[in-house]
Amino acid sequence: MADAAFFHDASGTVRFSVAVEGHDVNASIGRETLRYHYRTGEDADPLNTYGLHAQEIDAAVRRRLAQGSMEPVMLRENDLKAPA
Score class of each variant (00 low, 15 high):
25 V>P: 00
69 S>P: 00
84 A>W: 01
79 D>H: 14
51 G>A: 13
58 D>I: 00
58 D>Y: 02
77 E>A: 10
51 G>Q: 12
45 D>V: 08
56 E>V: 04
13 T>V: 05
33 T>S: 04
65 L>C: 02
70 M>P: 00
3 D>K: 11
16 F>C: 07
22 G>A: 03
64 R>N: 11
3 D>T: 05
12 G>I: 08
5 A>Y: 04
42 E>H: 12
14 V>A: 01
78 N>R: 15
4 A>M: 11
42 E>A: 14
21 E>S: 14
83 P>T: 11
64 R>E: 11
69 S>L: 02
78 N>G: 07
80 L>C: 08
12 G>E: 08
3 D>F: 05
24 D>S: 13
37 H>Q: 02
69 S>D: 14
52 L>N: 10
51 G>M: 03
52 L>E: 12
32 E>C: 01
15 R>E: 14
12 G>W: 04
35 R>T: 09
46 P>I: 02
54 A>F: 07
69 S>R: 13
64 R>W: 02
71 E>P: 06
19 A>H: 03
4 A>N: 12
30 G>Q: 03
19 A>E: 13
77 E>C: 06
17 S>N: 11
21 E>Y: 02
58 D>E: 15
15 R>T: 09
77 E>N: 07
61 V>Q: 08
52 L>V: 00
68 G>A: 03
75 L>K: 05
28 S>W: 03
